[in-house]
């Protein structure tokens, strides 16, 4: 009965963006599969709430705004040796081209692309990643599936995908794997700017007839962190209820 190829027992896993949505669900699922977690986000109250929803008590949290180098350093210095990293911190801003400014673009690229890139660099350079560690980036179908007003977000996730592939190749000789998950729409705090009626219309585009749930993305993260995927690197895993089929 104890056979479980997806077990995360004995693995230390860092999850960014763990105070909400997909990051929170990921922290919870990983704890259920035996991982020891370090969770991070900006909002301490919601991080505590995530901790309280997790199985076992050996986990820790680090409150940090990763847009600033102080925040990034604070996090990196608080980390033990890691067997897994999940980059889930991210923001969405929909702006038609006319409204795209340098400031908006810089802010979105910073959180969705530069932070995961720099964090990965620090973890590798400081030898915090153990040999055979698995890195998971939460990208989006938006990286290549266009939707109106989504220019900046699409570009940030496209950059993230390319970065992931470069890292996968460069770190392969160290035994470190990198993969990305591309979810379709999942109802989280990220989607509050979209009205319910707009959502209803949008759901018609999903062959499986609904949006995803955070835990459905989290389970794919577990898969990529586990030893079941030891021969998998540089892959984009799409989980979108069939949205991009047609």
């Amino acid at each position: 009965m104890s056979y479980n190829p997806f077990s995360l027992k004995g693995k230390n896993v860092l999850v960014t963006g763990a105070s909400s949505g997909i990051g929170r669900a990921t922290a919870i699922e990983c704890s259920r599969l035996g991982a020891k977690l370090i969770i991070t986000g900006r909002n301490s109250e919601r991080l505590e709430e995530t901790l309280s929803l997790m199985e076992d008590e050996a986990h820790s949290m680090v409150v940090a705004d990763l847009s600033y180098s102080e925040g990034l350093n604070l996090l990196v210095n608080a980390l033990p040796q890691l067997d897994g990293v999940v980059h889930s911190a991210g923001v969405l801003k929909r702006l038609p081209l006319k409204f795209v400014t340098e400031e908006n673009l810089a802010e979105l690229m910073q959180i969705n692309f530069i932070i995961p890139a720099l964090l990965t660099r620090h973890l590798y350079k400081k030898k915090i990643l153990s040999t055979d560690a698995s890195i998971v980036f939460i990208s989006s179908v938006a990286s290549s599936f266009a939707s109106l007003g989504n220019i900046m977000y699409m570009a940030s996730k496209g950059a993230l995908n390319s970065f992931m592939k470069g890292v996968a190749l460069e770190l392969a000789s160290s035994g470190i794997r990198a993969n990305a998950i591309q979810p379709g729409m999942v109802k989280t705090h990220l989607t509050v700017l979209i009205s319910d009626s707009e959502i209803e219309k949008d759901i018609d585009c999903y062959p499986l007839g609904r949006y995803g749930k955070p835990e459905e993305i989290a389970c794919a993260v577990v898969y990529l962190l586990s030893d079941a995927t030891k021969w998998m690197t540089g892959t984009l895993l799409t989980i979108d209820g069939g949205l991009t089929l047609r």
């Binding site: 929909r94 702006l95 038609p96 006319k98 409204f99 109106l148 007003g149 509050v192 700017l193 979209i194 009205s195 319910d196 009626s197 707009e198």
Partner: peptide
């Protein structure tokens, strides 16, 4: 839908007000 996004963006830019989807509805 592009007009909708443009209007939300204009209000954010000019008035520093973000109207969420369900309020705008």
């Amino acid at each position: 839908s592009l007009a909708f996004l443009s209007l939300i963006a204009m209000i954010d830019e000019e008035y520093d007000v973000v109207i969420e989807g369900n309020d705008f509805k």
